[in-house]
Design a protein around this nucleic acid. Sequence first.
DNA 1: AACCAAACCGGAATGGTTCCGGTTTGCCTT
DNA 2: AAGGCAAACCGGAACCATTCCGGTTTGGTT
Lengths: 150, 150
Amino acid sequence: MTREGMIESLREKGLKVTSQRLAVIDILMEQRVLHPSAARVFAAATGRGYRLSLSTVYATLHEFSRHGLIKTLEFDQRENRYEMNPEEHINLICEGCGRISDYPVSRAVSEETLLADRGFRVRRTRMEYYGFCRGCLRGGSSRKPRAGKT
Amino acid sequence: MTREGMIESLREKGLKVTSQRLAVIDILMEQRVLHPSAARVFAAATGRGYRLSLSTVYATLHEFSRHGLIKTLEFDQRENRYEMNPEEHINLICEGCGRISDYPVSRAVSEETLLADRGFRVRRTRMEYYGFCRGCLRGGSSRKPRAGKT
DNA sequence: AACCAAACCGGAATGGTTCCGGTTTGCCTT
DNA sequence: AAGGCAAACCGGAACCATTCCGGTTTGGTT
């Protein structure tokens, strides 16, 4: 999704295009590979001169997520992260440095199978593999050593 | 894993077998299909006459999880849940009633593939499908209508 | 029976996120 | 171009499941 595409989406859904939302969109586009947290989006935005509050960043990300423009990766101990990749994939989450990368893969069980088999209607999925990335395995070059719960 | 098996595991790992831990084990065994939360374990335990504190329940579950006796299902907004099923499976999580059920399935991508392909070493996985269970689809018989974030 | 690290306890602290009510603003109408 | 209004924004207070604290108890070993 491009910056213009997101703005287009806002209009389609009847959401207002505000300077704060544009700021969030810009940062999200720029940091998409990082799967940024709300705090990071806020820091990056203000650090670059945009004017908006942390509350607004939270509200905006929540709204974008609610409308399917982005996806929220919810965690218990670590802060939530946001991703823009709409394709089906597994998130590889490094417990050493906290980095998240995508690994494309098709859904393990089809929606139809689950519905027929269990009467369960899938709305969204979440697939995560926790472990250590190449860098952290290789003598922990590590940055931000953010271990999850062991 | 049986009650006796868990006690055995505690001894093997050098963990003390206390009355509080036995209480938690009993409740976990009894409520295994429910994937109970810490609060529920606590309530069930005290309600049945066991004497232990909520702090201890948290500490115990954390310890069991750390040693691989159980697995913690971490959530952001809702409370964490704990499961005893050691098999590879997908957790079907109903956004209507909060019920969690298991759907056995083999790992989508093998450990070896990921290591060769990305240099990523998998330590644990998490696969969840969110949606609505049979009961909630059929006119929301619903109990505990616990919606996650939309 | 003594010893000690591990486990337990209640209560205070934590911290990412949400809520609150009051103010500002995008956008539709005229 | 001005008016009107619901949506969006804001800072600060509130939330709450979980963790932390230090002081006490206890399982298991010597």
